[in-house]
Write a protein that binds this DNA or RNA. Structure first.
Length: 587
RNA sequence: GCCCUUGUAGUUCAAUGGAUAGAAUAGGACCCUUCUAAGGUCUAGAUCUAGGUUCGAUUCCUAGCGGGGGCACCA
């Protein structure tokens, strides 16, 4: 990459000016140049502009520098501005077409084994738009790591035991007949909605009456001990949820994983993750671990529970095993860390969750430092913000939730309306509306830096214009349409990019050259928003180019423009692929 | 009360300590007998307050004010 070449050249030049280590940056701002650097100003000694002059002189004399760059200038307080030779941009168009779906990938994480845990929906509860957020972000992280050469495994961790399950099961016990009927005769969505009703009802009971709370606590114990009283209901409900989740992963565009192994015999045959972990197993293992380390003094007994005390964490005391002798989230997570490692000897374990558990996770990692120091070091907690409604936080406890499927369906209807006039088959229209809806939703999640809350206004947030997923899809469609036209007109596109004359390098070519750098930074910083804003910028540049120039024409420049369109299409497709957004050929 | 996090155009979001703070929407003015107007062109509009570090601060530090989350047996 040009950036790396430039970096080395500057490094060499700086050494001639300063003996000490200089920490400089290379950045891009098209207002000024193709690349810029602050190297001269980062040198502690001397006058910045004089240092810049010296660096410039060295670079100008470098053969390797002159091979790729046409010019270096000094500006402002001492910035070095660099211009890339125009022919490099043309050559790069050829590189895009040659590399195809590999363009932009790199090897920075080659041979690294990474496990990414995300989505983590709980059986017996709804799959709401918050899970959609975790899924979109997690899938991006996984794909970005893969694009950087890592061997990635996807993991999904599901809470199939615990109070929340007991709440639903307690209600379902009371509704036994109704539940059995729906279980036998109802379709999946009826089954699921009955369960979420049961959960909301159970939750109400738990909060409003002591008797209800007591009942649910009893049922909770029965779930842990696998009592026969609840076995059928529990098993039935669990299966429904897991089946439903798999259906959603398919809708969200996750690819089935090859050779995946459910981590326990009880697991249903999920296909979309490599590993499925369940609290029923991590709880058991976690409890054993905590008990073992209680003896070693890592944990302490307090008020009938086993806690990780504040003195050790430096944060605050957390319960790992409660006074009912059941493992809490923290103990389960401890168990999970080791179970994961046994399944897959990872170099890095990334856990994607909502940010409301940030504090717990910090305590957990401190505890893990005592228990599994190596794993603690290699675990990275990546938290995203909450998906909030303009009316406030949504709550599955009260039943005020927007489900992922419900929202996607609503948007699909709007899009179906939009494509109604197009000359397309009904089947195509349906497929396209699904693809565009997914793009609208996923993009609105991924376009901002993860970690911040998203205020999700259904009417406003999900946009089809401007800075949106559909805009990128539309531009991709435009490139494909151009290629179809060229084919119909029997115009052959350019194949040799080494000696093309009369091409005016536009913003489009420069952006194409930038893609690999963007991908690398997005992966390094876990920042899908960088890919998003890059893609929109590329779309904008290409659409402006398209408005100004006739693309399809049977002459040298036409042939070049067709090739350029194909390259733009390829990069858009690669970028969308990273974001987990489909790229339709027509819309 | 304590801890974490956040504060940028009317709104929703950008900006590895750099040059003139970018987009998108909403507003105003234009462009479909050139390849999909889900598009393009022009225009107006913003860094919570007070200090500090720095050649240079939206970015780092301190304090204050506002939003969000958390503060042992839910996850």
């Amino acid at each position: 990459m040009l950036k790396q070449i430039l970096e080395k050249e500057i490094e060499k030049a700086v050494k001639k000016v300063s003996a000490g280590k200089v920490d400089f940056a290379i950045f891009r701002d098209e207002k000024f140049a193709d690349y810029s650097s602050n190297a001269a100003m980062q040198i502690g000694a001397g006058v910045p502009r004089e240092n810049a002059e010296k660096i410039k002189a060295t670079l100008s004399a470098s053969k390797n520098f002159n091979k790729y760059f046409s010019k270096v200038e000094i500006a402002g307080p001492g910035f070095l501005n660099f211009w890339v030779k125009e022919e490099e941009f043309v050559k790069n168009v050829g590189s895009v077409l040659k590399a195809k779906n590999k363009y932009g990938s790199n090897k920075t994480l080659a041979k690294k084994k990474i496990i990414v845990e995300f989505t983590d929906p709980n059986p017996f509860k709804e799959f709401h738009i918050g899970h959609l957020m975790s899924n979109s972000i997690g899938e991006f992280i996984a794909r970005a790591m893969e694009f950087s050469g890592a061997q990635v495994k996807r993991a999904c961790y599901q809470g199939d035991v615990g109070t929340h399950v007991a709440k639903a099961v307690t209600t379902l016990l009371a509704w036994k007949d109704k539940f059995n009927t729906v279980l036998k005769k109802g379709n999946l969505s009826e089954q699921v909605s009955l369960m979420s009703l049961a959960y909301a009802q159970g939750n109400k009971q738990y909060e409003e009456s002591d008797l209800g709370k007591k009942m649910i606590t009893e049922v909770n114990k029965k779930i842990y001990t696998k009592s026969k009283d609840i076995a059928d209901i529990y098993k039935g409900g669990r299966e429904i949820s897991l089946k439903y989740f798999e259906e959603i992963y398919g809708i969200l565009g996750m690819n089935p994983q090859k050779g995946n192994k459910p981590s326990s015999a009880k697991a249903s045959a999920g296909k979309h993750f490599d590993f499925y972990f369940f609290e029923s197993e991590t709880g058991k293992h976690g409890k054993t671990i905590v008990e073992k380390f209680l003896k070693k003094g890592v944990f302490a007994k307090s008020e009938g529970a086993i806690v990780f005390p504040e003195e050790k964490s430096g944060l605050h005391t957390r319960v790992f095993i409660n006074s009912e002798n059941l493992p809490t989230y923290e103990a389960k997570e401890l168990g999970l860390a080791e179970i994961k490692y046994k399944k897959y000897k990872y170099n890095t374990s990334i856990v994607v969750t909502g940010n409301e558990i940030n504090e717990y996770f910090k305590v957990l990692l401190r505890a893990m430092e005592f228990v599994f120091p190596k794993l603690a070091k290699n675990t990275k907690h990546l938290s995203h913000g909450m998906l909030r409604l303009p009316t406030g936080k949504m709550s599955s406890r009260t039943g005020e939730v927007i489900t992922a499927v419900g929202m996607l369906e609503d948007i699909e209807k709007i899009i179906l309306e939009k494509v109604s006039g197009r000359d397309l088959k009904e089947k195509e229209k349906l497929k396209i509306s699904k693809q565009v809806a997914l793009a609208a939703v996923k993009y609105s999640i991924l376009k901002q830096s993860i970690g911040k809350d998203i205020i999700f206004d259904l009417d406003k947030s999900v946009s089809f214009e401007g800075d949106s997923g559909p805009y990128i899809q539309y531009t991709y469609v435009r490139t494909q349409s151009i290629l179809r036209n060229a084919k119909e007109s029997k115009i052959k596109e350019l194949a040799n990019f080494n000696k093309i004359e009369g091409v005016n390098i536009s913003h489009v070519e420069k952006l194409l050259q930038q893609f690999p750098e963007v991908v690398e930074m997005a992966a390094e910083k876990y920042a899908p928003n960088l890919v998003c804003s890059y893609l929109v910028e590329l779309c904008h540049a290409f659409n402006a180019y398209y408005a100004e120039n006739k693309i399809v024409s049977n002459d040298a420049i036409g042939k070049y423009r067709i090739a350029l369109s194909r390259a733009v299409g390829q990069v858009l497709k690669n970028g969308l692929e990273l974001l987990g957004i489909p790229a339709p050929d027509k819309m």
